[in-house]
Design a protein around this nucleic acid. Structure first.
Length: 306
RNA sequence: GCCGAGAUAGCUCAGUGGUAGAGCGCGGCCCUGAAAAGGCCGGCGUGGGGGGUCCGAUUCCCUCUCUCGGCA
């Protein structure tokens, strides 16, 4: 049986993925699927540097801006939606091309997630409260009792993961360390190719800073104000830029400082993305100077497509 | 030109007669249902140049260079 191709174009923020993806999709007859935890939301176009109409008009895009910011979303719901979108694309005889910078989302599709323990926001809130009251160490001790193996892998300060592990244990009676071994990925009938764009660090950071400047020019503050007035999900409220603008509006600092922080946090984010993708040995790195046209980038990637 | 203050990490600065720290920045890493989140680790340095005192100087003394104030 012929293998199904599944392509990924990933890389740090501001590396030029969106435009390159469209150029590549044109070349290989692909449709694009969002692989970005924030670009799935609508009404956050400036904040998330979502691909504009010019790009989305040239190639069919899936899972971009389809979700209201008040809705929670996560890697599991993404995996489900993404695989559905991919099937539709296969039915058209085309290739799904995932584009975005969310490493976990990429891994969720390819490698799968263990099942049977969905997120329980109510339980999380309860555990969070407990952590706040008695300290995170208290939760860690609890985890140490029920699941010493996971506890040994999680740092005592990593509250998010401690809570998730406890959540899994409380809901299923099984340690997350045991369940995590059960993940199931795509299987042998898929042929996955991952391309990651990269630039020299100074160039990348320069582009990140420039992009933040551009976001402000486009009206980031106004968009953020609007979003902050509405109800935001636990997922969407952490879109880079929102917490910083929120504190600015509270009078904690001025707009210049907010901008500085958004730039810095975006650079840190880009760095973390690189760490994630570096670890994944399936990634084929596409090193760029930063001045190439999207077509040139696509051409570079195309060479490795067969 | 004179007087005063200073010259220590990429930046802002602290400190000590036994070759140095802090914050920010920066680098590396972890990540299985919040992931643009969350967490961990790392000082990255001929202490402005030269000389002297001392067992030993970044610290004390002299000198030169530079910077910043003030006076001319």
């Amino acid at each position: 049986m012929l293998k199904k191709d599944l392509l990924f174009l990933v890389g740090p923020t501001a590396s030029g993925k969106s435009a390159a993806a469209v150029a590549l999709a044109k070349k290989i007859n692909a449709e694009i699927i969002c692989c970005d935890s924030m670009q799935v939301y609508c009404g956050m176009d400036i904040l998330t540097s979502a691909p504009d109409k010019e790009l989305t008009g040239r190639v069919r895009h899936h899972l971009f801006g389809f979700l209201k910011p008040c809705k929670n979303y996560n890697a599991a719901s993404f995996r489900k939606d993404a695989l559905e979108a991919a099937q539709k694309i296969y039915q058209k005889g085309k290739i799904p091309l995932f584009v975005g910078g969310s490493g976990l989302y990429m891994s969720a599709i390819i490698d799968g997630l263990f099942t049977g323990a969905p997120a329980d926001m109510q339980l999380r809130r309860k555990l969070e409260k407990e952590a706040k009251l008695k300290g995170a160490r208290c939760l860690y001790k609890k985890l140490l009792k029920v699941d010493p193996l996971s506890a040994s892998k999680i740092h005592a300060n990593d509250c998010r993961r401690i809570i998730r592990s406890l959540e899994v244990f409380l809901k299923t009676g099984k340690p997350i360390s045991y369940l995590q071994k059960q993940r199931q990925g795509l299987g042998p009938d898929y042929r996955v190719k991952i391309f990651a764009l990269n630039l020299s660090r100074p160039r990348l950071y320069q582009r990140v800073d420039q992009r933040v400047e551009l976001m402000f020019e486009r009206g980031l503050e106004k968009e953020a104000r609007r979003l902050l007035r509405s109800r935001l999900s636990k997922t969407a409220c952490y879109a880079l830029g929102l917490p910083e603008i929120k504190e600015y509006l509270r009078g904690k600092y001025d707009l210049q400082e907010a901008k500085r922080l958004i730039k810095r946090n975006s650079r840190h984010y880009a760095k973390r993305q690189l760490t994630w993708f570096r670890k994944d040995k399936r990634v084929k790195w596409i090193n760029l100077q930063g001045a190439e046209t999207p077509q040139a980038v696509a051409k570079k990637i195309y060479k490795f497509c067969n």
